[in-house]
Write a protein that binds this DNA or RNA. Structure first.
Lengths: 199, 199
DNA sequence: CCGACTAACCGAACAGTGTTAGGTTAACCC
DNA sequence: GGGTTAACCTAACACTGTTCGGTTAGTCGG
């Protein structure tokens, strides 16, 4: 197939299909050939629209993070922190399979930095020193990313026999998969509340 | 080369060389062929001692996590939480390049579960409900893993020009790489202290 | 002492990966 | 209408984890 009358590919379409594959099959489930097939195209054609796979993932990550809301600081800084953390986590948990990628490389994404800049500025305006503001923002990110990884409550076996013998205090851990989502959210809220209260 | 007089390979030696490669070249820098070459051997030979690469990484992860100290709960639960979190983070930051692997899959490693069991039991003994104990343990892990990922303060550019124009509040961010380690540790301590105090 | 057996390694291969080079043709512009 | 470019293709490269079948050194039973 030579040049088609209407283009089959566009950066947007590539990104959105790629994200759908990641959501469905996980981060490892995305390969350039599979992505191309989903788009009705050969793998090499993607490179006319996308520089590398890594760049594609970065772009997808940025688009996911664009949903983070840092508008809550007009009320007060505690409320701002909480809203920011919640929306950040919400964005990440909508596409949990891309979190390992975010956790991988440096945070030099433009979207991240812009939000960080706002956060930092708001904390300084509220009276914290620059250094304190940096540490508070970092602490907030720790909780957000830690909870988004959710390598915690997910990934537990659902077979009671896996626990009763070897881990006496985890004898109800097999119930976790069923309530994992809810428990993860409550754990996040607990950690967030404790952190902000403790500042 | 057929069977050598003294074996060249052992699971221990494989693990330790693999970990050294990961520490030096990152998680992506470890391939079975490269590992084999470092051991003076062909790649296929590794599979007589190691089931899969994934299993190898799991074993390495377990050995790294074996340094986590959960003995502090004999004093009181706050002290126990803090000590556990500190030693956990220390273990992870000694081999930061393996953290993305930990963050990837489920936490079904035996080492993790044993420590989690102790932690959970100690919190319940201290009067927390089972559910609360689970959430507190989760929150602690959020902070530990979030800070260990350190996709935060690391990964900043050291060129001031990257920030001054676009991110007015981050005009000193170029100083970060130089003090990143210290700042990361302080951020972790702040988050940990705030979290435990806020409980 | 000698044969059987096993343990430890190797070479070659398979299916998969990201990526690039070079070719073909449709659409667009002058 | 001819030249240029954009969008796709096929084929290949160098790599990945892993497996199969061989080759030989060490070990153990008779």
């Amino acid at each position: 197939m030579p040049r088609p009358s209407t283009p089959l590919l566009s950066p947007d379409r590539i990104r959105s299909v790629a994200l759908a594959i990641i959501d469905r099959d996980g981060l490892d489930g995305l390969s350039m050939r599979k992505l191309a097939a989903s788009l009705g195209v050969q793998a090499a054609s993607l490179y006319g629209h996308v520089r590398t796979k890594d760049q594609l993932l970065n772009d997808i990550a940025s688009s996911v993070l664009s949903a983070v809301d840092v508008s809550g600081f007009s009320v007060d800084w505690r409320e701002g922190l909480i809203r920011c953390a919640r929306s950040y986590r919400a964005a990440l948990s909508t596409h949990p399979n891309i979190v390992p990628f975010l956790a991988y490389g440096p945070a030099g994404r433009d979207e991240s930095l812009q939000r960080l800049d706002l956060l930092h500025g708001a904390l300084v305006d509220a009276g914290w020193s620059r250094r304190e503001a940096t540490m508070i923002a970092a602490g907030l990110m720790y909780i957000v990313f830690g909870s988004a990884l959710s390598s915690f409550s997910s990934g537990f076996s659902s077979d009671p026999a896996d626990y009763t013998d070897r881990y006496p205090h985890l004898d109800r851990a097999h119930l976790l998969p069923g309530v994992a989502r809810e428990l993860d959210r409550d754990s996040f809220e607990l950690a967030l509340a404790a952190f902000v209260r403790g500042l």
